[in-house]
Structure formats: structure tokens, C-alpha cells
Nucleic acid binder design. Structure first.
Lengths: 240, 240
DNA sequence: GCGACAAAGATTGCATACAATGACATAGCC
DNA sequence: GGCTATGTCATTGTATGCAATCTTTGTCGC
């Protein structure tokens, strides 16, 4: 019996059954989203063939997408083994936040000096959306938004290199929060986001920098950075 | 008559005629080097087939390498057009140095706080090599070394994310210097590198940061950032 | 002579087929 | 019984062939 039996096999058809061909960009975004929303948890293996089947395209295009994802450190590529959703270690976690501090200090400084009123209003609007999500208890949305706030800062600063690096670091932060966050601490305190926007609006660069550093420190502080990861579950220990 | 006539065609053979199969990593490094050493100037088209022929491998592997190079912004990928060696605009140049300041301020701060005596000696040794290259007038080597100094700082700081970003930014800086440097100004003044190492050795973080910023400002200041690029050679102008 | 259109050529985009490598399971040996 | 060896299976690595797209050049009409 042939292996594939869950779907018809003749023509390549994506998961929704629609025959619309997806662009590589769309495939990239779908996987990126799935990782950000934790539908693909850290450590998950991303088989080329399975992904190809899921999106109705050949492995060639999946490889192209995985290459991009690996350049952003969202997935790790192990030779002859395949691609895996990144699973940052404690050491990597410290490196991520160290890098974030370095870059975000510069970003808020730039914004405090150059932000237009329109920029400020976009930041305010974003913070308001976060607040709304928090009130309605929409945690999935809140996690996405609180990360996107920092990406938005990078966008408004107008530096494509820092933006791209921040995108990668924010994605990794989402994975880190998933792995190490203590049970019931929200990712970002939106009050702190507001304080940062306040300082930017006043053009107070030193204050904005201090608020940003403090904010990042709070996020790190809310994590439970023990060496042991949830990764491999030790069967022996459980039944000992 | 078949198209290829410069070399025998039966077996894939790389440019040296040796049959040793090159790994993707090696191909990557060869292209990276060629760009850094300006044998592939900004704007050069990197045809998949030609590269494949040059290295004796198929287009598939070349594409993988080009994907990596494009993720580091060393080459730009234009859909349906191909890959080109990056040719940073004036605007991008400002962004590159803005990003470098952000990251390198953090790096020297880290080193001033945590650098071991061994780290300092490696920095000293590197600065000495730069000095030697300057004395012997080995400009090609000096350009490589003066960039590598900044990469070395990132390595010693021990943050893989900042390291990778710095690698990309230094590569871009080499292209920028090629495009916009005034005729006879060397890339980096090694005296300044020494000053940075001094401050790191003394653990004087603020001083190290100031020296680094000043150093980067000097590099930017030595450039002739006019809008016109050397990019496309204007045939009309040449024969006018 | 100048502009628009069309065909030819070259190059990238993509899918598929096969080779190579690693993981797993079974069998054999100490 | 536990450890090593070997064969099978699943998955990635690579090459190749065809389709799609862009560039160029030649031709036509104005």
C-alpha cells in the first residue's frame, strides 16, 4: 500500500484543499507565525517532505524558506539531520537579551531624537492594542503584540539592519518566554511600554534608554533560567 | 558546436583542474573572500551557472551558498534576475555605521568589563599585524585586517548574535570603502585601534566607548558620500 | 530616424529522481 | 544479559530537466 492515504495524491494540493499556489513569502510567513504562536514549539522537527506536502509544493522551495528561517535563527539546520525549531539554551538567552539591550538602547535614542508625531501616535496606538488584549485576556494576541512593539520601534527608527536583527531577536525571545517563563507572568508589562513612549515623545533620550534597559531587565528577571530545559524528558526520573 | 570549449566537459572539474570536491562551506568562503578582496566588485552579477562551472558543482549548491550570502547582505537577490554583489547606497551607508555604533559601543563595554589578559593580548597582536601591514604597504592585507579587528572584538565579547551581525556589517563596510573612499585615505587608523585596546585593558568602559565612536566617526568622515555611485558605467560619458 | 512590438536567447524558478547519510531494529557474539 | 555488528528504513544532499520570466535584438510602421 502506498504511504500517503490521508489525502488524494494526484495533484499537489495545499492543506486547505484550495489549489491556489502559495508564494515562498507566504510559506515563510505561515511557518514564522506558527512558531511565534507556539503551534510549532521549540525543538520541533521540520521535515522538508512533510512541510512540502502541507503547503502543496516541492522540497526545493521548502529548503529555500528554511534557509531564510535559519539565517534568522528561528530554526536550526543540522547537517544530514534536518531543520528544528530553535530551542535557546540559558546561555543563548543571556546573549539574546544582551544583544537586545545593545540595539534597543540605540533605537530609543534614535527615536527620542528623530521621532515624528506620527511615529509617536503609532506607538501609542500599538500600546493601546496591547492594553486591550490584556484586558480581554487574549494571551496569544498579547504575546504577539508585546513582541511587535519592539519590532515597531525598530521599524520607526528606519534602520533596515537593526530592524532585521531585532526581528530575529524578538522571535527568539518568544521562544525563550515559552521555554523559561514562570507560570503566570505576562511577557511585557504594557505600563513600561507606555513609559518608553512617554520619554520618546518628550525627546528625553537618556530617560528612554533607562526605561528600555529597565524594561528588558524586568523581562529577564521574570524568567526562570535554570539549566534544565523542558526539552528531553527524563523518563527514568519520572518513574523513579 | 556545443557552448563550452575552454575546458573538457565530461567530468565536473573545478577551476584549478583538481577533482577535489569542495564543500559548501568552502565555496561560501571563496566567494566571501573574493568580495572582501574586491575581486568581485560591488554590483557584479553572480550567475548561478557560471559559479557552478567555476567550482565544478551544480546550481543547486550555488543557490544554497547565495542564500547564505544574501542573508548576510553581502549579495542582493533580485527575483528572476539573479544575485548581485551588494552595492550600498549612501543611505544604506549611514544605516550601516549607525548600526555599527550601536553594536560596537556595547561590545567594547562588554570587553572593558570582562576581557581576560589573553583577550587583550590577542587584540594587541592583531593591532601589531595591522601596523606591520601598513608599514610594508600591503593595502589588500591591511583592508582585511582593519575590518577583522572589529570582528575580533565581537568574537571576544562572546555574543554569537552580535558577532554575526558585526560580520555582515564589516563586510558591507569593505564594499562601502571601495565605493566611497577618497583616493588615498587608509581604511582605519591603527593608532585608534591601539587607543581602544588601551581603554579595554584599563577596564575603562566609558573611555573605550568614546574612542570607538570617535573611530567610527573618523571612518565615516573620510568617505566621500556623494549621491553618485560608480555603479553603472555611463557608456555615453566615456565616448563623449 | 524614432518608437513600439515580437521573436530569440539566456537565466532563474521549480519539480523530480537518485545518491548518500544517519537512525533504528534485529541478530550475533562475548 | 549486555554490547557490538549489520541490514533496513527514513530523511536529507545533490544533480538534472523542463517551465517561466526577463533581456536583447531585429523588424515593422509612422
Amino acid at each position: 500500500m502506498p504511504k500517503g492515504s490521508s489525502t488524494r495524491e494526484k495533484k499537489p494540493v495545499n492543506e486547505a484543499g484550495s489549489a491556489r499556489p502559495l508564494s515562498n513569502q507566504e510559506i515563510y510567513e505561515r511557518i514564522y507565525e506558527a512558531v511565534s504562536e507556539r503551534r510549532l514549539p521549540p525543538g520541533t522537527k521540520l521535515s522538508e517532505e512533510k512541510l512540502g506536502r502541507a503547503f502543496g509544493v516541492s522540497r526545493t522551495r521548502i529548503r529555500e524558506v528554511l534557509c531564510r528561517l535559519s539565517s534568522e535563527k528561528i530554526v536550526g539546520l543540522i547537517p544530514n539531520r534536518g531543520a528544528f525549531v530553535a530551542s535557546p539554551t540559558v546561555e543563548e538567552t543571556h546573549a539574546v537579551f544582551e544583544a537586545r539591550k545593545a540595539i534597543e538602547i540605540a533605537l530609543v535614542k534614535i527615536l527620542a531624537e528623530r521621532a515624528s508625531p506620527k511615529d509617536v501616535s503609532r506607538l501609542r496606538q500599538h500600546a493601546a492594542e496591547e492594553h486591550a488584549a490584556r484586558l480581554t485576556g487574549d494571551w496569544k494576541r498579547l504575546i504577539r503584540l508585546s513582541g511587535d512593539f519592539h519590532v515597531l520601534i525598530a521599524e520607526l527608527a528606519g534602520n533596515p539592519f537593526l530592524l532585521e536583527t531585532m526581528r530575529a531577536l524578538v522571535s527568539l525571545t518568544r521562544l525563550i518566554v515559552f521555554l523559561y517563563d514562570s507560570p503566570r507572568t505576562p511577557a511585557c508589562l504594557d505600563h513600561e511600554h507606555e513609559l518608553i513612549v512617554d520619554a520618546i515623545q518628550r525627546g528625553d533620550a537618556p530617560k528612554a534608554e533607562r526605561e528600555m534597559v529597565e524594561h528588558i531587565n524586568h523581562v529577564v528577571g521574570s524568567l526562570q533560567l535554570k539549566e534544565e530545559k523542558v526539552d528531553e524528558i527524563d523518563i527514568e526520573k519520572i518513574f523513579a
